[in-house]
Every structure is written in C-alpha cells, then in structure tokens.
Design a protein around this nucleic acid. Structure first.
Length: 424
RNA sequence: GGAAGGGUGGCUGAGCGGUUGAAAGCGCCGGUCUUGAAAACCGGUAGGCGGUUUAUCCGCCUCGUGGGUUCGAAUCCCACCCCUUCCGCCA
C-alpha cells in the first residue's frame, strides 16, 4: 500500500497517478479521502476520552497504592468515561476497517519515468534482439500442433483429468520441461541468487503482503477445507514475504532469491483467450526472481534483474524484445515494469514470457519489512520481482522456433546436457 | 489428533493487577582514554498513529492475534495462531 501520509499531503499527485492508470481506482480513492477524514475525527474524540480515563485511573491508583480508599466520585467518573469510550470505540473501529481496506485497494504510485498511455498500444519497445529469428521454408506450426504430433503434449488427456486449460507433458516433453527448470535455476544461482523451494500454499496474510488480496481474490484458487489457505499464483508471493514482519540488516541487502514453483491461476475473465496450448493454463511452471533492496538501489536492481531474465533468452537463442509498460498496463503493485516478449513464429508476434517489476515500498509497507539505514532509522525496503522465465511459454517458444520441416524439434544447445538428447 | 511448556524491544531474557513502554545483558550510536584500534569507563538507544510544529512538544496504541473481566492488564479469564517436547497417525 502507499503511505497514507502521501495521500494526505499530496492527494493531487496520487490522483494523477491513478488517472494515468486509466481511472479504475478513482472512486476508491475518493472514498478513501472521505473516510480518512471521518476516521481521524473519530480517533481524536476517542483519544481524548482515553486520556481522561488514564488520568482518573492514575488518581485512583495513588490511593490504592497507599492502601486507602479513593473518593467515590473518582470511581463514578471512571465508570462513566468507560461507558462513553465503549460506544465511541465501536464507531472508530468501523472507520478504521474501512480506511485500511480502501488503502489496501489503491494501486502503487507509478514511477515518473513510466510512459503515460491509454492502452497496451502505448507500451514502449526499449530493446529488440531478433538475431536468432529464422526464415522458415515451410509454414511454421503452433507449439501445440508440434507437441501433439510428437506425442510430448497431450491436451485431451489433461482435459479428461482436469478440464480445460491444463497440460499433460509426456516422455521427452516432460523431460524438456524439467531440463528448462534446472537450466534456469542453475543459471540464476550462478549469478548470485539464493535458491528457495517455498510452500505452494500460503495464508491470506501472505497474499495481502504482495498485493494479490484483498482486490484479486477471484484470480486465486482457495483451499475449501481451510479458508485461510490459497494456492500461489506466482513464487513472488512466498519469496517476497519471506521477510514479512522483520528488520533486515542493511549489510545483507540486496537479497536475491530464485525459485521454481508451480503457479495456479483461475484466469477468470480470460474466456476464449489462448484456450489452446501452453500459453494460458490454470497450472504452469515458473522460475521466479525476487530482490529485496534499499530504496536508493532498487532502480538499478530493476535493470540488473531484467538482464538476468534476458540472459535466459539469449542463451536459449530465442528472438525477443523488451517492453516498457505504459501507465495503463502497469500491474497493481508495480511502479515500473519491463516485460520480456518472445517471438512465436506460428502467431507471427511477440508474446510475454517475463515481467520484471519494481514495487518499491508498496509491498514492504504491507508486509512490514524494514531495514535500519545509516542514520539508525528504520526504513521500508524495496521489493522487485520478475520471471526468469515462465517455463511453459519457454517450452512453447522452443518448439516453435526450433521446429524442423520434418516435424522434429532441435533441442537448444545449452539444454542438451540437461535433456540428454538433442532432438525430439 | 492428544498432553505439557512457551511466545515480551534489533537479539537474549526478567517481570505475572496500579508511574512497567517495560530490569539486566548483547548489539548499535556518541563521548573519554589511545599515535590508531581494541579493552575499559560514561551517556544515549522500541515502533506505530493522531494533533502541533518543522523540528519542538502533547496525547493515544502496541509485551503472538482477537475478545472479555476491571476505575486500571504484559500480568487474570476465554478463543484462535505459532514454536518446543512427548504420544498417536502418516508420505
């Protein structure tokens, strides 16, 4: 969440940021301002009463300590105040809850360098590497056509087991998926990331820490037998929350984590979109990157993290480009985001394969994660996350970009020591 | 799932109804001593929120979480969560 003091001191700046996102949150914002006013008024009243109560209690205490009876008028006054407080506190609690819910529903302030835009058309291409883009002498097939022909992907079987938007990998396909995970993790751990294998189920509080809750509950899978537990939609959630409610030594920063996890998303609201193949499934694999840094370093960290994710594509020799998301397309928790997009020959277009975001102190404030700065003061850390990469989409990109006219697929060189075969 | 014990400041750990927001130690910051460092000694050192200021004061809240008892709760009661140990079950 953003600092409510910033909202109070510069409401126009925050409003401007919300408008640039497309104005979806304007109503919430205005309601927040209104409720905050009421809450502070109510708080003032209650605090004054509590102050009175404390003073009377202190007076009574001075008699009790001396083992003498306090005057009856003190006791009566105290009882009186108590009743009033109880009434007013109930009121206060209502405002307090409303304000905190509203505050949790306001998106992050966008960074000043983010291009303003009204649709994803306004996203900016900042880099392109198509040196590995092939000219096909035949009509390139889609990854699911290739996969099904080679019997390494079976969507019918997956649908039988689980319904739509699931994949079943078989034989060399299953092994290629595993090889990709291993390759990515090895690469990142060599680059200074600490590998984590986190829980795939996390609590409501954890989901709130990174911003998936309370706004986006309909995107998550929940556990029916335990309403506090949710399946992670990304490893960003457990990784970033590792330092929830704690103070980190500044010397430990930046912390860099990588993890492979399965990810689970309901994909509500994407009916009819990417219904075939590996692009948009309810369950998919991803290798994630997370940084926890000091505020002055987080923008540099974003560039570094993006490069670490790009390296995977470079080594796999896949054509890709880097997009800087415009204000409209920016995620809820992010203040600045780069997307990496890989070339899919069958679609003749680039598709998102990684998203690298600087969330600044937005998540840290929700998680209560701080560090002690050089002045000895506690300060919120900055958090960043990025995919390094989405495994299923990488799988798809390999099938498409490395397909041969005879229907076979060549395994990228860097993967061969993991797969043990060079052709599918 | 059952039983017992426990969750206190950045950390360790005392307190178990009335100036206790909290002893002591560690750590950290400043100072003395020293050519410098260490040691020793002296002093300082929780966070959040509201108001007032813009840097000063006042107030409120916080001893796992949420309720309750009381004029007053870290301290008593209830529920829940987590940790440790033992038993049971189990990949």
């Amino acid at each position: 969440m953003i600092d409510i003091k910033i909202i109070r001191n510069s409401p126009e700046m925050v409003k401007d940021s919300i408008v640039k996102r497309g104005g979806r949150y304007l109503k919430t914002f205005e309601e927040l301002i209104e409720k905050d006013e009421k809450w502070r008024q109510s708080l003032k009243e209650v605090e004054e009463l509590r102050n009175k109560r404390n003073e009377v209690a202190k007076k009574i205490s001075s008699y009790k300590v001396k083992k003498t009876e306090p005057p009856k008028e003190f006791l009566d006054e105290a009882a009186n105040i108590k009743a009033t407080i109880a009434r007013k506190e109930e009121n206060l609690k209502v405002f307090e809850n409303e304000v905190s819910q509203l505050l949790l529903s306001i998106p992050n302030i966008i960074d000043s360098t983010v291009p303003t835009g009204n649709s994803e058309e306004d996203n900016k291409v900042v880099y392109e590497d198509i040196s590995n883009k092939r000219e096909f002498s035949f009509k390139p097939l889609s990854h699911y056509e290739i996969g099904e022909k080679l019997s390494i992907l079976d969507f019918d079987c997956a649908a039988k087991l689980s319904g739509s938007r699931f994949a079943l990998l078989k034989g060399k396909g299953a092994k290629l998926e595993r090889a990709l995970i291993q390759f990515m993790l090895d690469l990142h751990t060599q680059n200074g990331y600490t590998e984590i294998f986190p829980p795939f189920l996390v609590t409501r509080k954890t989901m709130t820490g990174t911003g998936q809750l309370p706004k986006f509950e309909e995107d998550l899978y929940k556990v029916v037998s335990d309403p506090e537990l949710f399946l992670i939609p990304t490893a960003e959630v457990p990784l970033t929350n590792m330092y929830m409610d704690s103070v980190i030594d500044e010397e430990l920063l930046p912390l860099k984590f990588t993890a492979y996890t399965a990810c689970f998303r309901q994909e509500a609201g994407s009916y009819g979109k990417d219904t075939k193949g590996l692009i948009r499934n309810h369950q998919f694999n991803k290798v994630e990157l997370v940084w926890i840094t000091t505020p002055d370093y987080s923008m540099t960290a974003l560039e570094k993290m993006r490069e670490d994710a790009e390296l995977v594509l470079k080594l796999l020799k896949l054509p890709y480009r880097v997009i800087e998301l415009c204000s409209f397309d920016l995620g809820f928790a992010s203040s600045k985001t780069y997307d990496l997009e890989v070339w899919l020959p069958s679609e003749k277009r680039f598709r998102e394969i990684s998203s690298c975001s600087n969330c600044k102190d937005f998540q840290a404030r929700r998680m209560n994660t701080k560090f002690k700065n050089s002045m000895g003061k506690l300060e919120y850390v900055h958090t960043l996350n990025g995919s390094g990469l989405a495994v299923g989409r990488t799988f798809a990109a390999i099938l498409e970009n490395y397909q041969n006219s005879d229907g076979s697929v060549t395994v990228p060189e860097v993967l061969r020591k993991y797969t043990g075969f060079d052709k599918i």
